[in-house]
Design a protein around this nucleic acid. Sequence first.
DNA 1: TACCGGATATCCT
DNA 2: GGATATCCGGTAA
Length: 200
Amino acid sequence: MLHTPLSKDFYINGHVTDIAKNLLGKVLCTQKNNQFTSGMIIETEAYSGIDDLACHACRFGKTPRTEVMFKEGGVAYIYLCYGIHHLFNIVTNQAGEGNAVLIRALEPLDGINTMIERRQKTTMHRIASGPGTLTQALHLKTSDTGNSLFGPNIWLEDRGFNLPAKNIEAKKRIGVDYAGADAEKPWRFYIRDHAMISKK
DNA sequence: TACCGGATATCCT
DNA sequence: GGATATCCGGTAA
């Protein structure tokens, strides 16, 4: 099988909502503590910088935590939510824009036993079906924030999984009710009828 | 110094 | 399926 790393252009060009859609079907990989794990991205959310009330770049501006959002596309933005969950975002577009895509769910592909161990589970059930669980399965932590998505520990691949556009569902984003009109934007994208998305 | 969140596990029906 | 307890770092005051 052909494993092509995503190019820099993939993260830079196009609207962040299109990048979020294009990420569906791509494969997120990590190499941590000598363990290789990966999963196909099946659910994403787009956050559009300083004009999007739901986006950290707009809510907080440039702070010590959010400053990596303002880098050029192709790095990880990882932050702690509810004091427990590490949420993984992909920074996109030009430096200074503050755009990012939240990865919400994966279908596990490689290193499934490692993922199950990290999640302290015994089966594959809900092993990476949520933004906080997939980071645990792939061992992504807030300490990885700002790191490159071109390896050696984190990278993305195109393995040629073909997703017809008609199988992509677009709905409003989760947990952004505070964002006024922007909360209604249909910027959550997922593969229709996939069993492993975070919620129906 | 005080508040609160881009969520999850667990226990219930 | 639904309700509920829970965690702590970042941000603003």
